[in-house]
Write a protein that binds this DNA or RNA. Structure first.
Lengths: 344, 344
DNA sequence: TTGTAGGCGTTATCAC
DNA sequence: GTGATAACGCCTACAA
């Protein structure tokens, strides 16, 4: 796995601070001071240094700087595989804030079940802090990383002591969604997409189940399936083969889109023959026909908050872990049922 | 911008190799050998070392390793701001391969026009190689980076000497798309989304223009607009206010989606009143109604190829820059016009 | 105002 | 088989 550098490669491509110093006829200490603005440097000297820097196109090696400063100026983020629009948006929100705070972002997507722990440990060793997104890393490893002194922010995941948590509200939105569906007269629910681990999908189903219970309806067990369009399509085919439910509530929009496809295949009308709902409000949800009723998550904001929280932990601005929950919003479109006003 | 580490932070959170050595009663050299499997270590010694490593939860500092090895084991990728599904997919394809090759991925999104050069230089100093995506970094800076010995792979961009190039085929697909639209009887084209710089959108319009010319039709100047759904919506509103064109060919799917929205606002039927086409084949293109006719780019494959090419350059497996073009595919759906078979 | 020297955490080359 | 020790590139007291 370790690749060799080409024979003539010295590792540091550009010039080093020593060459700049020699070029400017000063010591490396002076070069460093001139460049960072720390300590006094005579104007004339500074100018000579800057000239040498320009001429040599010198950029300090991040390795040297980090080693000396004792910080990486980089954060990591690990997120699930098969990452669709939802993860991408969160990632972008995260990167924007992190880079504004002067921190590079190292990403790690979980592809293999087996290797992820090693990769995450590796990653933890090259960053000042880590964001763990969803159900990617086990509690014990997270505890270990926190214990080793690397701040961790959890994103859309069950809490772990010592780590910050940023998530979006699930239960209340699930209740709102359920009430809305009940208002359409739907009684027979299918819950598609079982929580793989302990992530926040469980909270959604709990909210749905509780609300149904209040209406004396027993919610079914969630049906497990892969959280992709294809997963939804396959599950939808299986589901729609037998007696139709009133509504297929999906764990996310991609699933719902897949179910829409399955319904179309069978010549079923949505919402005429059955209702379908998603979660997240990804771009395709808005453009699908019927447009998906879903719950909007503040995706970029989730990422931004995580970056902010991590920064506080790293700088020591805040010492104790905190949990924050972002509001979500029920977005009623057409896939959930025909609305009274449009009924005749 | 530089944040201070908390007072008690030594930079390296975990234990160092010295503590492991002391713990195991050996020298650091032995610890290193035992850990990396380089050089001989007596079985008993190795076991003592491993025990100490486990007990102390030692992970070698990436900084130390990199400094000694003369490599970062990390690659960078810089991509445009406002990055939608297209960029996200490419990024994911890139990360997957890079991480399989044992390289971390550092991302940098271009938010500000002004600061990007400094950020890219910074980034170039902490990676073994760099991918530059689209129209984010100027030719001169790319040349400078290449000149400084950091391999660069360009993605969907005009070539630069010394840098690899991975892009997807534009001209031929543009011709195919145009021929198809002409086949529908469309003659009056609008080209929406002007190339911001010299990226590959220009190639697409060139293909369209050339094909139209062959049919003795003069193509209009491309209309500039922001490459987002919102940009398409606004441009679409302005466009559809006056006389309707036969077709609005858009530089990407997000734009086309926006135009669809604008048409809907004005009560216009697509493809009845006008045709609309996109480019990329993002998820929403498939689900939109009418479903978007577009050109599919192998997004994940683009990223994967870039990662592979960069690896070859870094390892020295290949010394000279190379250009590769990936095939695209015209995806005919319903937004381009009513098809003969469905006509009656 | 400037320079010297020690340290950051590894790896790898030598002797032993 | 094992242990000193010199890199690697930079920062920063401390001296001068």
């Amino acid at each position: 796995m370790v690749r060799e550098a080409p024979p003539d490669d010295r590792g540091q491509p550009g010039p080093t601070i020593y060459e700049v110093a020699r070029h400017a006829g000063v010591s490396i200490a002076t070069v460093s001071r001139a460049l960072r603005g720390t300590g006094p440097v005579a104007p004339a000297t500074r100018e000579r240094v800057m000239a040498a820097v320009r001429e040599l196109r010198f950029t300090p090696s991040r390795l040297g700087v980090s080693l000396a400063e004792g910080r990486h100026a980089a954060n990591g983020i690990v997120f699930p595989d098969l990452s669709g629009p939802y993860f991408a948006e969160v990632l972008l929100g995260y990167e924007e804030v992190a880079s504004r705070l002067g921190r590079s972002v190292i990403i790690l997507s979980r592809h293999t079940q087996t290797d992820i722990d090693r990769q995450v440990r590796e990653l933890a060793g090259r960053v000042d802090g880590l964001v763990v997104f969803g159900d990617t890393v086990g509690d014990d490893l997270i505890g270990e990383i926190v214990g080793s002194g690397v701040p961790v922010v959890l994103l859309a995941r069950t809490p772990v002591v010592g780590a910050d948590l940023v998530s979006s509200e699930n239960t209340r939105s699930a209740r709102a969604l359920t009430e809305h569906l009940l208002g359409h007269g739907h009684r027979d629910f299918v819950l598609l997409g079982a929580p793989a681990g302990e992530d926040d999908i469980g909270e959604r189903w709990a909210g749905v189940t509780a609300t149904l219970a209040e209406h004396r309806i027993t919610a079914p067990e969630p049906v497990a399936c892969e959280l992709t369009v294809d997963g939804g399509l396959k599950a939808g085919r299986a589901l729609l083969r037998s007696a139709l439910p009133d509504v297929v509530a999906c764990a996310d929009d991609q699933l719902a889109l897949g179910v829409l496809l399955a319904a179309e295949e069978r010549g079923l009308s949505v919402p005429g023959d059955l209702a379908v709902t998603g979660w997240d409000d990804i771009m395709a949800a808005r453009f699908a026909r019927p447009a998906l009723t879903t719950v909007r998550q503040p995706m970029r904001e989730l990422g931004a908050r995580a970056a902010l929280a991590l920064d506080q932990l790293i700088t020591g601005e805040r010492a104790t872990a905190r949990r924050q929950t972002l509001a979500t919003e029920l977005v009623v479109r057409t896939s959930c049922g025909t609305h009274p006003v449009e009924e005749q």
